[in-house]
Amino acid sequence: MYLTNGIVIGIIYAISALGVTLIVGIMKVVNFAHGELYVFAGYFSYYMSVSLGLSPLVAMPLSVFLVFLIGLLMEKALIRPTYGDDMYSLIVTFILSIVLQNLALLIFGPYPNKPPNLIFGATNLFGLFYYGNQRLLSFFISLAILLFIFYLIKMTWFGKSIRAVSQDREMASRIGIDHYRINMLSFGLGAALAAAAGVILSPIFPVTPSGSAAISLTAFVVVVLGGMGSLKGCLVGGLILGIIENLGAAYISTMYRGIFGFILLILVLVFRPWGLYGQKT
């Protein structure tokens, strides 16, 4: 049961972390506003389905698309001028996270919100225990998104351009790849992945504006654990963190759920600072 929970949550962590690692890998920028984008997406999907009465099936992709647009805008207006200055991009995205968090508080209020479930009931898993259908469905949606992203990066023109830019920006532009466009698109995609995790997870764990820091951190731990810029690392890292958190919460302490990630981060830094699949330089 806890293990299953861990795997389901872990896959969603992986999606969220993919959003971070994509941006780090390509642009060497850590998006500290990652958690806020997640929270915004959760609220969008809540308001669209509860206030506007849209079906969650419509509200979810629409929210993700909206956050994708926000991501494009962020990159163009604020991140692009900081290229080549890692320090300023860190500062800018951090300020942005505070601005967005306060904006969320103003617009949505401090109360946790929970978009409606897509599906109800529970299914008997392997004849062992009953497991919520919503969680099972979340698992499959997440898996589909993961496969789609892997396909996108490994197989398509967009993916090849992304990898070219991340390896050598100058060379990429020489062979005709517009790295501004690629950066903008990948920042948008990173934002959309945060949003995807947000809309999938918010029916299970309600979103609050103040919860965003923890969401960012979870994604960062997964990225460091898996290795910065590594897609495979995100998947494995997400699963490891999901399982450890759920087992830890069950057998050690729920209050300290958030601390397991940090302990894991410290252990990684001590024993394998470049992560599981990262490049050792």
Binding site: D86, L90, I259, L265, I266, L269, V270, P273
Partner: peptide
């Protein structure tokens, strides 16, 4: 000692985590 040899981004990430942990504790 843990994160500085890995460069600036790691320091930012680790200190953010530390900050959150202090709050939880």
């Amino acid at each position: 000692v843990l994160c500085i040899r890995m460069g600036g981004i790691y320091l930012s990430l680790t200190t953010l985590g530390f900050s959150e942990i202090i709050r939880i504790i």
